[in-house]
Nucleic acid binder design. Structure first.
Lengths: 155, 155
DNA sequence: TATTGTTATACTCTATAACTATA
DNA sequence: TATAGTTATAGAGTATAACAATA
């Protein structure tokens, strides 16, 4: 790993300075990607802010769970996920059923109304991204997805 | 473009549903990347929040400019960049000099103090990313940088 | 009158800390 | 006593709209 990280993409061994630049560039790109995220957030329905959409998405992908696990998957503080969950529960998009094994916990479960919201979100995202990435090959989109997933798991 | 966007990466023609999934996956990944950004934001100096760091970075990359151009490059509303600029100017990291050609504008210019802050930021980012991405090849980091840059320009 | 910037206000996300209920 | 979750509070980012100054 150390040896590899000392090689440039297209050439021979490089300096520590060039190494730093590569990582600094990644930091810059991640900062800049905020604009893309803001653009996507703007297309959400008015009563479904990004945090609420994230709750629905995680429950759809990983199935029913307790708040502690949702918190872990969202990588935020539990106070944050708790508020987002309250938001989606108040709108009837998830059900909260007391955990039979531990009365302190409730099982969070996506319901049909939540699935409908999720379908609407997916549709809007798809329309927006299809338009923006019209000149991307599917392979490139997949490559970006793969690298982003790997980046997340590296943290 | 349309023909291409109807092919899967590793197989034959696919359905509209699978197409949507690819874009929805990208939306999910972009949402999830927020956790990485929060991690990186945590390593910033206390008096240099992400918005301030972004101002310094853009001025370093693109040279002196007026607020209107900075706003464009940061892809935010001018009210936002104006506040960030005030923040870094109050700390003496940039100079604001009246534009000779238009008294409404001021030229924003990174000064030595700002460059010192920027060097510190770069150092912290590099340390954090070197640790987190220890098992990444330089080629993969470069590939991610390239795709992220392309994503930004597609919006 | 149009443009550049600033500021007031409001909303969302986030974390820390104090608190409640249950194990 | 320890853990799951809630809520109060505060800080940061952002956008809209009203405003000031200059072109």
């Amino acid at each position: 790993m150390v040896a590899l990280s000392n090689k440039m993409g297209g050439g021979p061994v490089t300096t520590q300075t060039a190494q730093s630049t590569r990582y600094e560039e990644l930091a810059r790109q991640l900062t800049g990607i905020g604009a893309v995220k803001r653009d996507l957030a703007r297309i959400l329905p008015a009563d479904c802010p990004p945090g609420a959409a994230a709750v629905l998405t995680v429950l759809d992908r990983h199935g029913e769970m307790r708040l502690s696990r949702l918190t872990e998957l969202m990588a935020v503080d539990m106070s944050v996920s708790s508020r987002h969950v309250t938001h989606v529960a108040e709108r009837g998009w998830i059900d909260r059923e007391t955990d039979p094994g531990d009365a302190r916990c409730r099982i969070l479960r996506l319901n049909p109304a939540g699935r409908a919201v999720l379908a609407e979100l997916g549709s809007r995202y798809t329309v927006a991204l299809e338009r923006a990435l019209a000149d991307w090959s599917p392979e490139d989109v997949d490559a970006l997805n793969t690298l982003l997933a790997r980046l997340r798991s590296s943290f």
